[in-house]
Design a protein around this nucleic acid. Sequence first.
DNA 1: CCGAATCCGTGACGATACTG
DNA 2: CAGTATCGTCACGGATTCGG
Lengths: 122, 122
Amino acid sequence: MPQFPAFDVMTATCPSRTSLARIANKWTAMVVIALSVGPLRFGDLRTSVDGISAKVLTDTLRDLERDGLVTRHVYGEVPPRVEYELSGLGRTLYTPLRAIALWAEEHFTEVLAARESYDARQ
Amino acid sequence: MPQFPAFDVMTATCPSRTSLARIANKWTAMVVIALSVGPLRFGDLRTSVDGISAKVLTDTLRDLERDGLVTRHVYGEVPPRVEYELSGLGRTLYTPLRAIALWAEEHFTEVLAARESYDARQ
DNA sequence: CCGAATCCGTGACGATACTG
DNA sequence: CAGTATCGTCACGGATTCGG
């Protein structure tokens, strides 16, 4: 087990908590991963991130835009066209998020098995 | 930007979503990181993860135990002593989680700056 | 048709008090 | 010391409706 030096995330006063909180929600990771292929418009994101509702996708994108992770381009067309793209900062987030997603894909069978045996024990 | 092949996390039916959801909450990452140094008892965890309440810590530990990420050892002593330890599976989760925490610590200034300028714009 | 705004329920989160 | 019990709040997330 590694040693860790200045553990700022662990102290409640440190503002790094706020950027950790941004990631700690249901959809952020998937949206960022979906955008990692390049700019996508709203509708494509909606089908790419399976199961997300329109409202939640808008909220997630607003938050990501507010935190400088995503940029938003509106084209004055009919029908309307809005594209979302990862910023430079957003791209730095992609690698660790992808690692989390890979972990989830690799280990979910073990997680489900552990859960089952835990529930059976009660 | 990289290509991704079989993107199971992105499909709503895939059970890997459930293990992704485990990480998508406020405290899991910090608790796992705190436990990465070795076994800790409840009280030490409580002070290590600054700001967490007893109830929420218990809930988080229960969930982690249920999913096989943490083991719980009760020593029949007075006063009671309970130690929590990362399982093998839990240790595989540490690396990606630590990467996320590092990202948060490295980039929170940029995030806060972006947020400020976004809010000023409204 | 595409994207945004409105309403609303649930559940995570948190404070406090209490028990073995 | 290591939790439980109870209650309150609030924001996340979902169905629906609106706008252009």
